[in-house]
Amino acid sequence: MTNYIIRRLIYMVVTLWFISLISFFLIELPPGSALDARIQQLRNMGGDMSVQQIEALRQQYGLGDPWYVRYWKWISGAVRGDFGDSFQQGAPVSQLIWSRLGYSVMISGFALIFAWLVAIPLGVYSATHRYTIPDYLVTVIQFIGISVPEFLLALLLMVFAARYLNADVGGLFSSAYQNAPWSWDKFVDMLKHLWIPIIVVSAGSTAWNTRVMRANLLDVLNQQYIQTARAKGLKESVVVWKHAVRNALHPLIMALGGVLPALISAEVTTSIVLNLPTTGPLFVTALLNKDMYLAITFLMMLSVLLVIGNLLADLLLAWVDPRVRLE
């Protein structure tokens, strides 16, 4: 077991290194630099930058160096924990990401828990009551949930909430609480804003989880050992929950491997539409403006979490399913 884990860790490091190289190169590929957006902004306000100033900034941020030089500068800092500065936001990258990480994890975490809490019972109910009206109803709703793009769902919910529920939409806090220190009222205010993001973010995965749960459970319920269990005289609920569901859960657990990176990127388009203070929008703007260090650090964070998540999912699967042998 330990051998297996060590081997996986070594593979992880190699994979991550390749990812960082390729990503850095790809992000560098389009012409222009982060400086352009700043110059354009300044120019729109008429505060033109002199040629000397532009040169000085280029030197300072190393924007004129070839990509491997800049890569080396970044990686040598990154392994020490210094991820460089974001040119566009004018702050260290680690500070920018850290300040938003809490909200990202919270929203994604809640959405994940919500998705599982809804999906598993719904999937089990759907499977055990196949072809009944509630099953069809659930199926239709789930298909809509998978097909409707999340940002569209977000917009629809926002308009609905704004028009008919008179709710204050957009953002996690009302303007009164935005800058206030944490208090019970602020927490309640946040909960009032939280329900839209959680529904939207979990819509897709709830739907998927339910469908998979239902399909798998149907498969498992046809197995012979389930027949045996019923023949032994066990109660139906015990047969379903103690024996069948546990075996039907495996694909969901494997899917958990991909959940860790989703925890911090929290559905970018939804965050932009709902104006949430999460890391997703930061990432998108960094890519659009070629804000090098912010983009690459974020990408690496996602990659690290993905490979770790996959390892954990594999280990978890091995623990749940005794048939799995780790090679």
Binding site: A162, G170, V273
Partner: peptide, 20 residues
Amino acid sequence: VIMTNIQDPEVLKLKTTQGD
């Protein structure tokens, strides 16, 4: 005076029509 930033322009218009 309070200035709030709404990243998406369409959402900004929605909130403006809602009286924010």
